[in-house]
């Protein structure tokens, strides 16, 4: 059955505390951090971007399993911060894992769910027999305007899944999507920062779609929340996924292992996939994982996943790449001035 044959995540080393950002804007950092359920966020080094993060995540996935690069027939990278407006991120990822030239590739954009859209496309190609394996990446160096609410969470990181048919470590039992035209968050061409509808991003946007897709999945599979070991929801902050989980009837114990946002921030296209990676880091054979992503604009992709024996077999070596908690633990806290330099907010002469 089609499934995840390997996975890998990457998070840059640098962090800024939410309180430090609040200090610059004269806001109450303790209150904001508590309200958001986010205390630190990751930021890229000055020589890191969505391409380097995607490559590192894809290489981590390659390190965990002996995948012949020639078997990789497709590479898709979902992001809203592709370094080039025109020139694909996916080709660099393909070349850096040795999968070029016999492969197809494209970049995806669907706000924060572009990564899971890449997973769905990969599944389709694998299931149809068009390719043996496909690499699906969700990664971002997320943008948020200085002083805007987004700045407190917009973070850098990503994850890659290798999708294939042979001996998956986790089978993807089903995927379904819930999509409408909802203008809750956008970034216009040539604009450095996105804009959003404030509280409009909540109920008619995030919750409507996440709940819509999740309910469709439960109905289709004939399952109830308690049938799952873990649940991962798109995590723009700590509050939304917790609320969505409780609305659906998932417990805190089910979502906590996949709630990476608390000390990572919102990695946009990377967010639910990094959360899934954190769950795969600890999952045992037989564990069932529920995942629903969300991308503004808007849509949600829901996945029903069952971990197989292969995860503990010789075919797979989880220790060959760092876990999400390893990546989160290896950190260096910086102040706002260094953060501004890293994020290119300091204007330099060309």
């Amino acid at each position: 059955m089609v499934g995840i044959i390997s996975y890998g995540a990457y998070i840059p080393r640098y962090r800024i505390k939410i309180e430090e950002i609040a200090r610059v804007w004269g806001a109450n950092g303790t209150e904001i951090a508590r309200g958001l359920g986010v205390f630190e966020k990751a930021l890229p080094d000055m020589d890191e971007d969505t391409i380097t993060i995607s490559v590192e995540a894809a290489r981590a996935a390659m390190a965990r399993r002996k995948v012949d690069p020639a078997d990789i027939g497709a590479v898709y990278v979902g992001s809203e911060s592709h370094p080039y407006a025109v020139k694909p991120t996916a080709v660099t990822v393909g070349e850096a894992i040795g999968a070029t030239p016999v492969m197809t590739a494209a970049d995806y954009e669907f706000a924060c769910k572009a990564g899971t859209a890449a997973v769905q496309t990969s599944m389709g190609l694998v299931k149809s027999g068009m390719v043996n394996c496909a690499v699906a990446v969700g990664a971002d160096v997320a943008q948020g305007e200085p002083g805007d609410a987004l700045e407190y969470t917009a973070a850098a990181g990503g994850a890659a899944l290798i999708i294939g048919n042979d001996d998956p470590i986790a089978e993807i039992n089903h995927t379904c999507s819930f999509t409408t035209d909802t203008p809750d968050f956008w970034r216009r061409e040539n604009k450095p920062y996105p804009r959003h509808g404030g509280r409009f991003t909540g109920e008619p946007a995030y919750f409507k779609h996440v709940i819509g897709a999740s309910k469709m999945m439960l109905e289709k599979m004939g399952t109830k929340p308690s049938d799952y070991t873990y649940a991962v929801f798109h995590q723009p902050n700590g509050k939304f996924p917790t609320q969505a989980a409780s609305m659906l009837g998932f417990s805190m114990e089910q979502i906590k292992p996949g709630l990476a946002v608390t000390y990572l921030g919102n990695t946009y296209s990377g967010a639910s996939m990094v959360g899934l990676s954190a769950v795969l880091d600890i999952a045992k054979p037989g564990d069932r994982i529920f995942m629903t992503s969300y991308g503004s604009g808007s849509g949600s992709d829901s996945f029903d996943i069952t971990v197989t024996d292969v995860i503990n077999s010789d075919l797979f070596n989880r220790d060959a790449a760092p876990t999400v908690s390893d990546l989160l633990a290896d950190k260096k806290i910086v102040d706002y001035a260094v953060y501004a330099k890293h994020k290119g907010k300091v204007v330099m002469m060309e």
Binding site: E48, I51, T52, E350
Partner: peptide
């Protein structure tokens, strides 16, 4: 080894 940006020809 690590994969990084080596440089760019301006913005």
């Amino acid at each position: 080894r690590v994969f990084r940006k080596l440089g760019e020809e301006g913005s």
